[in-house]
């Protein structure tokens, strides 16, 4: 698959992540500086009315961008826009997807998303990739 020949309807290679672990979220808290305790400490999540800790939305979005990483030397992702649609809990298994919807010269527009095994959408949005000359 290359961005130069890809056609609408085609997908980037999807990725299914290992089940979400507490360590994933502790690492993201440390790396991002987002120490909101609902992402790492059970008691704090329960006090906030949640059944358990939830992943940082930005952890999921950060994972999603890996679909485009192999293509970053041929072009720039000028735009990422996502809406958070559902919470991610420990042991959830997430699949990351990107489908080309439109190509206009050097601009490629993708629908991007993350879904759980049960089909629930965690986040969804668009990315625009611009090929270098």
């Amino acid at each position: 698959m290359t961005m130069r020949t890809m056609q609408p309807g085609e997908e980037l290679k999807s990725v299914t992540l290992p089940p979400v672990s507490r360590l994933d979220l502790i690492k993201y808290a440390g790396a991002s500086g987002d120490f909101n305790p609902i992402h790492t400490i059970d008691e704090e999540a329960e006090n906030a009315g949640l059944p358990g800790i939830i992943a940082h939305g930005m952890w999921t979005m950060g994972n999603l961008t890996q679909l485009f990483t192999p293509y970053l030397e041929d072009g720039l992702v000028t735009d990422y826009h996502i809406r958070f649609r559902g919470m991610v809990f420990l042991d959830d298994v997430l699949t990351l997807t990107a489908t080309l919807t439109e190509r206009d010269g050097k601009h490629l527009t993708f629908d991007i998303g993350t879904v759980k095994t049960n089909g629930d959408t965690v986040l969804a949005g668009q990315a625009v990739y611009e090929l270098y000359e």
Binding site: T78, Y80, F84
Partner: peptide, 17 residues
Amino acid sequence: PPKGLIHGEQRYHYTRP
């Protein structure tokens, strides 16, 4: 507030990496 906020939406726009 330090807690209780919900992140609804996020965008990034880049001119270069």
